[in-house]
Design a protein around this nucleic acid. Structure first.
Lengths: 187, 187, 187, 187
DNA sequence: GATGAATGAGCATTCATTCAT
DNA sequence: GATGAATGAATGCTCATTCAT
């Protein structure tokens, strides 16, 4: 793997474990197995590292979800697929997920453009738009629907992790949760 | 006001503006109008200040919400009241709200006991429990229902603030959001 | 007891336990049971406290020794008595003794006049002078003899304490040590 | 010279002049001609610097003395050589000597293992042991003899320095002093 | 005299960043 | 590109001392 990639991985782990402030760049470097200064050949500043890492993790999640989108016809199933692939990714990548949250509620957040989801061409955006147009889901702003959808997934994630549910119970709860969320947004 | 209270206020503002790491204790002291060392007469460490502030803000919110709970009979109206008073508080106290989020997703979070909501005697806990027992809302774990409820408020808050809705539009959206979450949790 | 005396006692104990720098004046005050500022009604500065304490401990030791001096005739017995009373005091007051050492090898030492022993009228000075004049002990400078005498006590003290000798063994060793130092200084 | 060595030299000078507490690490750094943080690349804490310096000075003295030991046959001359090389070193390195005393009577002392002299293989230990076995000196514990020996050297040092003796007078006094000490310990 | 809150200078230590090799 | 010693600004925290009550 690229050295840059290795640094990002180490940084991800350490930032989630100890926070941004609690993680010295020298620690990231040494734990990656490179010299102190090498890190700065790849990232001009610690801040840049933090932001690049955010975009990288976000993209990773986005790619995963989009790849799983049942793209042909729009139906309740499309949304179930979206719901399940998102919560699945978060549960399989808890460190990545935590990093996204931690970043979002840090002062660094205001430094990034959230271009990804807000672009009109984005598959998620299109999915919701079509759902509304086809009167499958409520006639409300696309971003609002999207926000509620993601909030509920975050709540579900938090509940599963906090209560340490077994794999079996997780699947059951995820299914029920989707039905609940669907009740909420269906027309 | 007490000097301790003044320090907490200044800290709240600065922490939300610049983050924990971005706020020097000396800045908090000087902006409060006390000497550097005075801060440490009231809080042994910066960490203690951060945690005390969290508990204080949490209690402030909790007190506000509990005071507004329509306690007599359990009904959809009780939940609407709860929903509205919570989102209202968050919108009226955006800095406090932001502080709660920032703290929750920081490394400090693991240092606190979240006794407030998890206690069985807590009014919110009791309200949801009664709702379940009276078959008003779904037969699911109380904490799960609570999580979904709060997630909705979180999402709603975020949407309102990000999109800078007018007061009028806010009220309408809050009402609709409650109806949506109610659809989600009602039996 | 006087409040001033109480403060000195607490200071003595804490300084020996934790050193000058390791002992905050506030700690001395609180452990004495007086308010922070009270200490400064009795001693203008911490430095003054440290020096007053030194002089006080030194005088205590000096009084003890002088009281025990067999003053009538000058003989080997007079020196034995002096030797034994000094080592006895140090072993019975190890904290005081340690304080004297600690002070002597600290930067505060240069701030005091060592008037006590160097005065010609001082009984110890007189004893040694008479011993020399009577050709009991070597014809060497009084202060030199005094230094050797005290060095022997120092070494003996250190050995007894480091090796945790029993009371019985102590007495034996003290007797032998005196015979040794006497061999060294006798004419 | 190594930067680490330079820092130790400066620290030695400053600690003896102004005490441990009276010497800021920043002072040591600036007077050495390095940046503030550089000092902490070589010593993790000020305490570590203080202790490393102690061991270094102790070793320097020990090396000097051992090199000068007349190792072949055990005789009064061996002890004279030891006595003279020790007092010589102390007089030629008064700052080092003062540092050893200052450290010994500070709270840092309890943090070190005094392995040097107490090891049975140590030349000084062996010398005294052989002296006892050959019935050259008194049948007493080796450590006791060693302690008295060193105490008398310290007393002699203190007397010479306090009274500012000329070089000529020094040598004379040192010779006489050894004879006195020898009287004390010879069988 | 006694109090203890307030002060602020002072210091050890950290750590992002640089740069000569 | 890689290194890691050097940097020095920044900061949390301490504590002797003051002074209004």
């Amino acid at each position: 793997m690229e050295k840059k990639e290795l640094i990002l991985r180490t940084a991800l782990k350490l930032f989630v474990e100890n926070g941004f402030h609690g993680t010295a760049t020298s620690k990231i470097a040494s734990e990656t197995g490179v010299a102190n200064g090498t890190l700065f050949n790849y990232f001009r500043t610690k801040e840049e590292l933090i932001i690049v890492l955010f975009n990288s993790v976000l993209k990773e999640m986005d790619d995963f979800i989009i790849k799983r989108l049942v793209s042909q016809s729009i139906s309740k199933e499309s949304f179930r697929s979206l719901f399940i692939s998102t919560i699945t990714w978060s549960l399989e990548n808890p460190i990545h997920w935590n990093y996204l949250q931690q970043f979002t509620y840090s002062p660094y957040f205001k430094l990034v453009d959230l271009k990804i989801i807000s672009k009109e061409e984005h598959p998620l955006f299109v999915l919701i738009k079509n759902g509304i147009d086809l009167v499958l889901i409520k006639q409300m702003p696309i971003l609002f629907i999207h926000t509620l959808f993601m909030s509920q997934i975050n709540g579900l994630y938090y509940y599963i992790v906090s209560n340490d549910l077994s794999t079996e119970n997780r699947y059951e709860l995820i299914g029920e949760s989707f039905e609940m969320v669907w009740k909420m947004i269906e027309e």
